[in-house]
Design a protein around this nucleic acid. Structure first.
Length: 299
DNA sequence: CGCCAGGCTGTAA
DNA sequence: TTACAGCATGGC
């Protein structure tokens, strides 16, 4: 195992939280060691305090993948400043949520791997998505070690049979995966073009793909393309915003807030790191659940 | 059993 | 534009 030591400016850092908070799927944890696929490699990572031990990727790649160099202190400062500028007072709810998710980082996943994962994520829970991903890796993946696979290339996925792909628990998402794989296969420079675009252009480009709507596009932009202002609005985030921030959203129309209204509010309210703020809000519920479960199990 | 889940697509108003 | 049915299936 290779290793690196986190510097003071790189703390707090929480590997377990970052890999288990719904950004990436199919990674397996045994004790404190995580194993999963990144960028076509089987990767092993563990954290012991300020020590990160890793295998299967280079040092620059592990730093980038885990967002280790993200200026978290500046990011939280920026978020607080934008909140103050917006409503003139601190946001106690956000502070509470953030305090429970300290050490969380936005990952930088491989675009294709991230795209496949989040097309699979539609209307499913996190544990099901992980199983789905691992079934796809097992059946169609590229052989990496003698018993482990990485993500299948677009060419491979584009040619698989829909009934067979449905056996990987993909359900109605199977044709989306196949059609998107075909499109990427026929447009080999697709991700390079997306990478050159600004947030809104890149989002429109991603939404050309079958099975990719606004939410999946935002996940890919945030978790693979470093658009830290992207705000994926799923059920959980929608409820949080509606419960906590409805009074701040000027809504001339009645009825349900639109996707873009919620995302746009978050970008104005939290600023250019709204994606980080969103992930602090999103990640915290699992912690609360675990704490509740844990305390409920006490004799 | 019934509801929920990191939603998207097609159709109708 | 917005509203909604339909879609598959494991978790709980």
């Amino acid at each position: 195992m290779k290793s690196l030591t986190l510097s003071k400016s790189q703390l707090p850092f929480d590997l377990n939280l970052s890999l288990s908070c719904g950004q990436i799927f199919g990674w397996k944890r045994t004790r404190n060691t995580w194993k999963g696929v990144h960028n076509g490699n089987i990767v092993t990572i563990r954290q012991k305090g300020t020590l990160i031990e890793y295998d299967g990727l280079t040092k620059p790649d592990v730093i980038r993948f885990l967002g280790i160099s993200d200026p978290v202190s500046d990011i939280i400062k920026s978020i607080r400043e934008h909140i103050i500028a917006y409503k003139g007072s601190p946001d106690h709810f956000f502070e509470t949520m953030h305090s429970k998710s300290q050490g969380l980082r936005i990952l930088r996943q491989h675009p294709w791997e991230c795209l496949v994962s989040f097309i699979c994520s539609a209307n499913s829970n996190v544990s099901t998505i992980g199983k789905r991903i691992n079934l796809i890796l097992g059946r169609y993946g590229t052989s990496c070690t003698f018993y482990e696979n990485t993500f299948p290339d677009p060419a491979v996925l584009s040619q698989c049979k829909e009934p067979e792909l449905r056996e990987c628990l993909t359900g109605y998402r199977a044709p989306y995966l196949i059609k998107t794989a075909q499109y990427i296969h026929e447009h080999p420079d697709f991700f390079q073009q997306v990478r050159k675009m600004n947030y809104h252009q890149a989002k429109d480009m991603l939404m050309i793909l079958p099975g990719v709507g606004p939410k999946v596009a935002d996940c890919v932009l945030l978790f693979a393309f470093e658009h830290l202002n992207a705000v994926p609005v799923d059920i959980r985030i929608r409820k949080i915003i509606e419960d906590q921030y409805a009074s701040l959203i000027h809504t001339d129309k009645s009825g349900k807030l639109s996707y873009d209204t919620i995302g746009g509010f978050c970008r104005e309210y939290f600023g250019p790191y709204a994606g980080y703020a969103q992930q602090y809000l999103f990640a915290t519920r699992d912690l609360e659940k675990e704490e509740v479960t844990k305390s409920a199990e006490l004799p």
